[in-house]
Design a protein around this nucleic acid. Structure first.
Length: 256
DNA sequence: ATGGTTGCGAAGCAA
């Protein structure tokens, strides 16, 4: 199975790029974030024309997540089922090719110690509780998306410049580690150990070309899936050219 | 350098 995740930063603005990317990367499953579309506006036909079923969870202007699959898409659920769902449409799940797939868009947090930062940590806590009550770590579970946390300093363009900023604080990294302690694996790192492999670059100031970015988009896999990862890639080409998202897609191959 | 850019929607907010 080839599974991918991509924060598209408006599916309406990005649909041509997404169609082009599906055409050549041919993932079995693509998780998208920041679709910024209500479910009624989701371009279902554009995906079906390429052979993909799709599921969307969005309420319009901000946030919004979706899954496209060409290996089946069943038993769609939306949200965490708790108070953190007040923070917007940030999770959609479906069963695709024998894997329980989740597309997640973790809150940004804005400023450390702000109410938004505290809400981000609460969202993580509810995600963990959701996993604990819904699955066993031995199930085929994939949680893919924009986690808005760089797991380690090697995932940051300049760790010294980022000290005290969101995305790298100890509580945020501990939230991610708690998911790992439950049983999810940052699959990219199973096959890519190099420093400075980023998935997001600020639009401003030419940060992409200056290699000033963060690795915050992850494919987290339960152990039964992680044990069969064969390949991983950040497709930087998708961050280039005309009207790119500020995120690049991450692609993982699993021999299942 | 408290800058810079993009998307949405039509001014300012979020990222």
């Amino acid at each position: 199975m080839r599974i991918a995740t991509w924060n598209v930063n408006s599916l309406n603005a990005r649909l041509p790029r997404v169609e082009e990317w599906l055409d050549y990367a041919r993932p079995d499953v693509l998780c998208m974030q920041e679709t910024k579309l209500a479910d009624a506006a989701f371009p279902t036909m554009a995906f079906s024309a390429l052979g993909y079923e799709s599921a969307s969870h969005g309420d319009g202007r901000w946030n919004g997540v979706a899954i496209a699959s060409r290996v089946g898409l069943d038993d769609v659920t939306r949200g965490l089922g708790g108070p953190a769902d007040d923070q917007g449409a940030r999770l959609v799940a479906a069963t695709c090719g024998g894997v329980r797939v989740h597309s997640v868009y973790v809150p940004n947090g804005r400023e450390v110690a702000s109410e938004h930062y505290e809400a981000k940590l609460a969202w993580y806590a509810e995600l963990l509780a959701y996993l604990e009550r819904t699955y066993k770590p031995t199930d085929n579970v994939a949680v893919c998306g924009d986690f808005n946390v760089a797991p380690e300093d090697r995932d940051v363009w300049d760790p010294a410049a980022m000290v005290g900023s969101t995305h790298v604080t100890a509580p945020e990294r501990a939230s991610l580690r708690a998911l790992e302690d439950w049983g999810l694996v940052d699959s990219f790192r199973l096959v890519r150990s190099e420093d400075q492999l980023f998935t997001w670059w600020d639009y401003r100031a030419g940060n992409f070309h200056k290699h000033m970015g963060l690795r915050i988009d992850l494919v987290m896999l339960s152990r039964p899936l992680a044990d069969h990862v064969t390949y991983a890639l950040v497709d930087r080409n998708a961050r280039k050219g005309k009207q790119p998202s500020d995120h690049a897609p991450v692609l993982i191959d699993i021999d299942v």
